[in-house]
C-alpha cells in the first residue's frame, strides 16, 4: 500500500481562476489540492489545467462525495472513478471525510455527521479498507466540522479516528479549523481535543476560515464556511499542533468568496513561516 507522502510545506486549494497567475511563475507552494469530483469529466479545461499544475507541483486529491460514513455500502461506481483519477494523476495523497453524503441513490451534497458507536466504527473501518484496497494506496481521513451531536454516541471522535487509523492503517487529515469549529459548537476545549487526537497519524493539516452564528439558545455556533482568512485562534492551535507533530503538509482552503491569488499566497506564506520554525525545532 503506497503511503501518503505530501511534502511538509504549505499548500493551497486550487481554484481555476488562479491558474494564469500560478502558471506565470514558480509559486511558494509545496502542493495543490483539488476536489476529486470536479475532475470526473472526460476532458476539457479542468484536466488541461490540472495536468499542467501536476508537472510542477505535488498534488493532493481530496474527495468530497464518497460517503465513507454511510451505513449503506460504498458507491462502487464512484470508487472506480476515484481509481481512474488517482491512476491518471498519481497524487502524493488521497483524502476523504469522516462523514456521509449519500443515502439510497440520492446525493445530499453535504458532509453529514454520524454517531460514534462500535457499529458505525466497524462500518467506517470496512469502507476505509475497501477504498485503500481499490486505490492501492493509503488514504487520509479528515475530522469533520460538526454542528450537533448524537445521543447514541458512545465513543469520542478522537478515539473513533484513532481506532479507524489503527485498524486500517489509514493516515489522518487534521483540519485545525474543524477542531476549533466543532469544539466551540460542542462547548469543548480545542486543546483538550488535540491532546486526545492521535497526532502521530497526521499526514496533512487543513486550515481555513469560518463564520459565526448562534444556536437555539443563543450560544455561539461556528460554521465551516471557508470564506475568510484563517482566524487567529486557529493559527494558534496550528502552531500548537506543529510543536507536537513537527512539520506536516498544511493546506489553505478557501472555497467561497475566493480572493485574488496574492491573498491566498500570503496565507500559504504565513503557514510556511510556522512550518519553518517547526523544521528548525526538529533540526535542533
Amino acid at each position: 500500500m503506497k503511503p501518503s507522502h505530501l511534502p511538509p510545506r504549505a499548500g493551497v486549494g486550487f481554484k481555476p481562476e488562479h491558474f494564469s497567475e500560478i502558471d506565470a511563475a514558480r509559486q511558494p507552494v509545496g502542493f495543490f489540492e483539488v476536489h476529486a469530483e470536479n475532475y470526473m469529466g472526460a476532458g476539457g479545461p479542468p484536466h488541461t489545467r490540472l495536468a499542467r499544475l501536476r508537472e510542477d507541483y505535488a498534488l493532493s486529491i481530496h474527495g468530497v462525495g464518497l460517503s465513507i460514513g454511510s451505513m449503506q455500502p460504498l458507491d462502487r461506481d464512484h470508487l472506480a472513478r476515484l481509481k481512474v483519477l488517482c491512476e491518471r494523476y498519481q497524487p502524493e495523497s488521497f483524502s476523504e471525510h469522516l462523514a456521509w453524503s449519500s443515502h439510497d441513490t440520492v446525493f445530499l451534497n453535504d458532509l453529514l455527521p454520524l454517531p460514534y458507536t462500535q457499529d458505525t466504527l466497524s462500518r467506517v473501518v470496512e469502507h476505509v479498507d475497501q477504498v485503500q484496497e481499490a486505490l492501492g494506496r493509503q488514504m487520509l481521513l479528515e475530522n469533520p466540522a460538526t454542528y450537533l451531536l448524537f445521543a447514541e454516541s458512545t465513543l469520542e471522535e478522537t478515539a473513533f479516528l484513532a481506532e479507524v487509523s489503527r485498524r486500517t492503517g489509514c493516515g489522518l487529515l487534521l483540519d485545525v479549523n474543524n477542531v476549533f469549529v466543532a469544539a466551540t459548537n460542542h462547548h469543548l476545549d480545542p486543546y483538550d481535543y488535540l491532546a486526545r487526537f492521535p497526532l502521530d497519524q497526521v499526514r496533512e493539516i487543513h486550515l481555513s476560515g469560518h463564520s459565526e452564528a448562534t444556536d437555539d439558545h443563543s450560544a455561539p455556533l461556528l460554521i465551516d464556511s471557508h470564506d475568510t482568512p484563517v482566524k487567529d485562534p486557529v493559527w494558534a492551535l496550528y502552531a500548537h499542533v506543529l510543536e507536537r507533530t513537527g512539520p506536516v503538509a498544511s493546506l489553505i482552503e478557501w472555497d467561497n468568496d475566493v480572493p485574488a491569488w496574492p491573498v491566498l499566497k500570503a496565507e500559504a506564506e504565513a503557514a510556511n513561516t510556522l512550518l519553518a520554525k517547526a523544521r528548525q525545532r526538529s533540526a535542533a
Binding site: 481555476p16 491558474f19 476536489h35 469530483e37 460554521i223 471557508h226 482552503e253 472555497d255
Partner: peptide
C-alpha cells in the same frame, strides 16, 4: 484563453453561503 476560462467546479466541501442559520 483555455486556461483562463473556467466554469466553476460544482463540488465543494465548505458550508455554502446562506448556510448560517441566522
Amino acid at each position: 484563453k483555455c486556461y483562463g476560462v473556467a466554469m466553476k467546479g460544482q463540488n465543494d466541501c465548505a458550508a455554502g453561503a446562506g448556510t448560517t442559520c441566522a
